[in-house]
Simulated assay, not measured.
Amino acid sequence: MSDAQPMSDTPPTDQPTAIGADFTSTTCGASTGGSALTGTPLMPEAGWLAINGNSNLEGCVIGSSGALVTSAYVTNQPPRGYESYAYGIWVFGQGPAGFQSGTLALSFTDEGGSDYSLRLFSSTPAWHYVNYNSDSPGIIEMRWEPSTIAEA
Rank of each mutant, 00 (worst) to 15 (best):
V61P: 02
G88P: 09
Q94S: 10
D135M: 03
L106Q: 04
Q77T: 15
T75E: 15
I139C: 03
L68R: 09
Y116I: 07
M142T: 08
V74L: 01
I51H: 05
R80D: 08
W144P: 02
N54I: 11
Q77R: 13
Y85G: 10
S117W: 13
L120M: 11
G95T: 09
G81M: 02
G102S: 00
L57Y: 11
G63E: 03
T70G: 02
A105S: 15
V130H: 08
G95Q: 05
S101T: 15
P137V: 11
T109L: 13
L118Q: 06
T109A: 12
R119K: 15
A97P: 00
E141L: 08
W144Y: 07
G95S: 10
P78T: 13
E141W: 11
N54H: 06
A97E: 02
E58C: 05
G95I: 05
I51V: 15
Y116Q: 07
P137N: 09
P125I: 08
S65V: 11
S84N: 14
I140R: 04
P96R: 05
S134L: 08
A97C: 00
A50V: 10
G66V: 07
V74D: 01
S65N: 15
Y132G: 00
T109E: 14
S117Y: 12
Y82F: 00
A86P: 03
N56S: 06
D110P: 10
S134Y: 08
S71Q: 14
S71K: 15
S55Q: 14
P125A: 00
N56Y: 05
A72H: 01
P79F: 12
E83I: 13
A97G: 00
A86E: 15
W90N: 04
W127Y: 13
Y85M: 10
S107W: 13
A86Y: 08
V61W: 02
R143W: 02
